[in-house]
Simulated scan of single mutants.
Amino acid sequence: MTHGTTPPTTPGPRRPEAVIPCIDVSEGRATEPAGHPGLSDPRDVAEIARNYARDGATTLFLDVFDAWADTGYLPDLLRELDETGLAPVVSVQQGVLTSLAACEKLLAAGAAKVSVSTSMAEEPDLVASAATELGGHRLLGVLNCAADGRGGWRVLVHGGDTRTGLQATDVARRYGDLGLAAVLANSVDQEGTSAGYDLELTGAVARASGLPVIASGGAGAAEHLVAALDAGDASYVLVNKLVHSGRTTIAALGEALRGTAPEEGHGP
């Protein structure tokens, strides 16, 4: 994804640019120290981002845990991130959208896109207004999902703490109707397992939405990224702890996607 543009629906598998690193942020700092070698401050978001950019990343997902009222630091941080060349996609308060003005402020400061998740379940009219007024291509839809035991997935909100009665594919279809840039399909069941993405989920979301899908939740090795891009109908893959911990690098994952490197998952 690039600043102000919609990701292509068929970017092609095995592109290094398809790997999107995520940084969890609170009070303007990474919530956990990064394990990358050579960092002077392992909790400095901009320094971690520069490391990812040097390794070939083009997009960065910022998962900001603070409430909107406590994000006064974000415009300055976004301006700093702009110097890295990365396109920041910003999620605030588990995908809550408080107002169009708040969203516009982040976009003006340098956010490529603002994500919506909780608000899509609780204030769908506000999300629809944002898509109309700001352009759907400036919004990223997020689905935090858990399997319902009947072959489907239920949507969870507030960071996965609250289950809803909404089916993931129904919300995905609505994201498609609104013309959002892409959909991030996160499997809460797979999250933190390092067992790989839920490929059935990513495929179902891609078919329902007609949008590019970012696979999320469960990445533990390069082979999981390859599987999502080759067999899971994903256009992009989100990685968090796999690279933030220092177990591997964006550059190594990119080489693995090209098919020119051995399987990763070990330290650099």
Rank of each mutant, 00 (worst) to 15 (best):
G4F: 13
T5M: 14
T9V: 15
P11V: 11
P13D: 13
P16K: 06
E17G: 01
V19Q: 03
C22F: 00
S26L: 11
S26Q: 15
S26T: 14
D44T: 08
A46G: 05
A49P: 01
A53P: 06
R54N: 11
A57Q: 03
T58S: 12
T58C: 07
T59M: 09
L62G: 04
D66Q: 07
W68S: 03
T71V: 12
T71D: 00
L77R: 03
E80A: 04
E80W: 01
L81H: 01
L86K: 10
S91C: 13
V96N: 12
S99P: 01
L100R: 13
K105P: 06
L107W: 00
A108M: 05
G110V: 04
A112G: 14
V116W: 06
S117A: 13
T118S: 15
T118V: 09
A121M: 12
P124Q: 01
D125S: 08
E133Y: 09
L134M: 02
G135F: 11
H137G: 11
L143K: 02
D148T: 04
D148C: 04
V155E: 01
H158K: 02
G160A: 03
D161W: 07
T162H: 05
Q167V: 10
T169P: 03
T169S: 04
D170E: 15
R174V: 08
Y175S: 03
G176Q: 12
G176H: 12
L178W: 13
L180E: 09
V183P: 06
L184F: 06
G192V: 01
S194I: 03
S194H: 13
D198L: 04
L199Q: 02
L201H: 04
G203N: 08
V205S: 03
A206I: 00
A208H: 09
A208Y: 10
A215H: 07
S216F: 02
G220Q: 07
L225E: 12
A228S: 10
A234K: 05
Y236L: 15
Y236V: 00
L238C: 06
L238V: 05
V243M: 02
H244Q: 13
R247S: 11
T249Y: 05
A252T: 15
L253D: 12
L257A: 12
R258D: 15
G259K: 09
T260L: 09
G265P: 13
G265C: 12
G267M: 11
